[in-house]
Each structure stands twice: as structure tokens, then as C-alpha cells.
Design a protein around this nucleic acid. Structure first.
Lengths: 217, 217
DNA sequence: GCCCTGTCGGTGACTTGGTCACGCAGGGTT
DNA sequence: AACCCTGCGTGACCAAGTCACCGACAGGGC
């Protein structure tokens, strides 16, 4: 019994199943750990309890793109894919912060799916959300200009008008190349919208940035 | 009772639920009909019995990209999304051929999900497959060259070394612009790999085309 | 036959974005 | 101090998307 409080993350489970989940041991993982790589077979259903896990796709040229990030209480859909369809991972997941995760073994996962409506709902909804967000991502990648995506990423990542990320990290967030991000940021800085420092971007004009982040259809 | 043979499309259902599904009336839809548009709310769970339904995303510049196509026996995941997560459609679905579809009403869908393991499995697997294929699509769009994607599309669409599609259609298949496809095809024709006619592309050198369709990592 | 109209495809000029190959600056380590 | 690693800036080049055209063809109506 690890007492990680499955109740808060998984509302609606029957108490006996909750107890079952509670008995699983959670793992603490340091920041930057790779949880799985493309081609690996799936060991179980992963739920993130705290911290953040990011799933990236890597292109042949070494360029990365963030598929989605898994926040506390969410599951990593990639693992579900493998459990249900027998497919292997195709993205690479690593911890963006130190994190605490639980791994639900395959047979237990399948049993829960079959006899617990609450758990089922949890999995289904996670699925639906991911699929939806993947479609939005695809839409952005296929149709939106870099400037637009960059503005969105900056706003999303900002803490008190400050973004702590290298240009390379920002590039991965929006699925572009480091050089391109550098040039765009430079352009934004020239216009007085942001201020650049090694490792951080300070947002000076949130309003204009928000405007740039909107679709120009 | 429409007798559309749910059994073949949905193996593993209990006989009573099969009968329930069989009692739904199917619809015949002519080629080119738009089944749903972005922003519409979801009326039910859609299953395609015959023909092909294609789901596109449209960019602000009018450019289209094929998200996936729904073959007989498959369901349209977009409709599932709406039923489970309450989200609206974000793609546009239309029939690529004349087609026969069934619409499972929302409440019946939810009941089936809850009490029929076979139906549940069907939905889950469809979900998993779509998500997987969306990730592959994203990978192609984000990282692969046009020539590569075009070669794949041509091979996938070929019937006896002949592809009956306009340049605009091919462009939508691979998420590019018509002009770009025209130029690429022209380049392929110059190299003697294909032969162009109004409305069709004839493949002369399948081997080279297959080679072009492989990733160049 | 002829014309009209809509679809299909070709083309040039331009812009945006990705790739490659650098080089330089700051902050640690030894 | 010499070193190295990481983050960032830059120029050149290429691939791809956009815009504005134009001609070529097919089908229908007269």
C-alpha cells in the first residue's frame, strides 16, 4: 500500500479496485529520465502522479516535436496503445521534471477495463483527449506559421512573463529548428515584444504576443 | 431489421446486442456527400458498411489534408470523440465513394460500451489504430519530404500501376499544395518514373518509386 | 459544327521555413 | 590558464508554400 491516493486521480472507481491500485508501488523518477523509446514493447499502463512527462517524436534529422505532455492524474496514452492494439511505442517519453509514476501491469489493466466502469471512463476520456489534441497539433504543424506557434508556446510556458527554456527546447515544443526559433525570437526582440537572455525569454508585451498567437485566417 | 450483417464487422458481440444493431436502419449516401463539418455536434456513433469515407482537415489557406479514411467495418473516430469527451468535430468527413453507413444513437452507444465487451473492444481498437495512424501522419507531415510522401501516396493508390486522381486530390492526400504536387510529378515524369495524363498518373518504374518512398534517414 | 463554362494542369516570382556549417561567448572544471 | 560544453548568432543554400496568372481540355447546349 503506497497510499498515493488513487481516489483523486481516478474518480468513480469501485473501492475494491481502488484498494487494488493503491497496493501498487509507485516509482520516483529523476528529471530527464527516458521512460520509453520507439520500438520498445509495452510493459503496462502508466499513470503520472506528480511531475510532468513529455512525449516527443524525433525526425531523421534529429529534430524533435512535442506530441503531448502528461500531467499529474493523466495516463500515457502510448502505453494504452500497446496494451490494446499490440503496437509498439513510436514516440520517446522522458520526464520534464522529477516525477512519480505508477505502472499498472497489463493483466490488471485489462481486468479493470472489463469490470470497472469508472476506470473504463478514465481510459476512454484520456484517449479522446489525446486524439483531439493530436489533431490540433497536426493542424498547427500543417497550417500555422512559425511565428504563431512560437507566440502560443511562449504564452503557454510563461511564469510571471518569464519563459525558462533554451531556444532548442522551444524549437522542440513547436516542432521547428533551433535556428529558426532564434531568428524569430530575435525579430520579436527587435520589435520590443520580448527580451532575450541566455536560457530565458522575458515577455514584455503580452497583448501583442497573444495577438500573434491567433490564427490569421 | 436491415440485415447488414453486423456480425462480420463486429465480431464478439452478444447475440442480443447484434440483433439490436441489426434493427437500426442503414443509410445509402452518394459519393461526395459531406457527413459532418467542423463545429457540428455529434449525433451518434458512425459505422461504415460499404464504400469509403474520408476525413479531412482544412487549413486557413484552403489547403486540405487527409486525416484518415474509414473503410468498411470501421467506425469514424471523430464521432466517438464527441460522444465520450463532449468535443465537437474538428475535421470534415465526406464520402469518397457511394457508401452505406449506420448511425448508432448516443444512448445506445453508451449502453453498448458499458455492457458488451465485444463492442467495447471494437471501439477501443478503432481508437488505438486511429491514434497510432495519426501519429504516423504527424511524423510524415513534420519530417518527410514531399517527394517521399508523394511516392507513398502514388503506390498506395495505384491500381494496376495507374492512379486515378487529380493533382489537387493527390495534394490533399499528402497535405501539400497542388502546384507543388504538379512540379514534383513533372520531375518524376522527366526521370521516366511516371507518365502523366489528365486525371491519371501511370507508374512506369515501381521499384524506383518504392525507393523514393522510403525514409532517407 | 461553334461557343461557353468549369475543371485541370503548368509557370514564374516571391516568401517562409529547414538544413548545413560555421563561429563566438559564457560558465564550469581541472 | 587552458579546456570544454552548452547556448546562441549568422550566412548560404535548398525545399516547400503562396499568389497570380494562363492555356488546354471536356462536356453540354445551341
Amino acid at each position: 500500500m503506497t497510499g498515493w491516493g488513487a481516489g483523486s486521480a481516478l474518480p468513480g472507481l469501485t473501492s475494491e479496485n481502488l484498494a487494488l491500485l493503491d497496493r501498487l508501488s509507485s516509482m520516483d523518477v529523476p528529471k530527464g529520465t527516458v521512460l520509453f523509446r520507439p520500438g520498445e514493447t509495452v510493459k503496462g499502463f502508466v499513470i503520472v502522479l506528480s511531475g510532468r512527462v513529455e512525449v516527443f517524436l524525433t525526425g531523421p534529422t534529429g529534430r524533435d516535436i512535442l506530441l503531448y505532455s502528461v500531467e499529474p492524474g493523466q495516463s500515457c496514452v502510448q502505453s494504452t496503445l500497446g496494451l490494446l492494439g499490440g503496437e509498439d511505442y513510436s514516440g520517446e517519453a522522458s520526464t520534464a521534471t522529477e516525477a512519480r509514476v505508477v505502472l499498472v501491469p497489463r493483466d490488471m489493466f485489462l481486468r479493470l477495463i472489463d469490470n470497472d466502469p469508472g476506470f473504463r471512463g478514465f481510459v476512454f476520456e484520456a484517449f479522446a483527449q489525446r486524439l483531439q489534441s493530436m489533431m490540433h497539433l497536426l493542424e498547427r504543424v500543417a497550417f500555422q506559421r512559425i511565428e504563431c506557434r512560437l507566440a502560443q508556446a511562449l504564452l503557454a510556458r510563461a511564469e510571471e512573463d518569464c519563459v525558462n527554456a533554451t531556444h532548442a527546447e522551444l524549437a522542440a515544443l513547436i516542432g521547428s529548428a533551433r535556428e529558426v526559433v532564434s531568428r524569430r525570437l530575435d525579430a520579436l526582440a527587435r520589435r520590443g515584444i520580448v527580451e532575450l537572455e541566455r536560457g530565458t525569454v522575458r515577455i514584455l508585451d503580452t497583448e501583442t504576443l497573444r495577438h500573434l498567437g491567433e490564427d490569421a485566417d
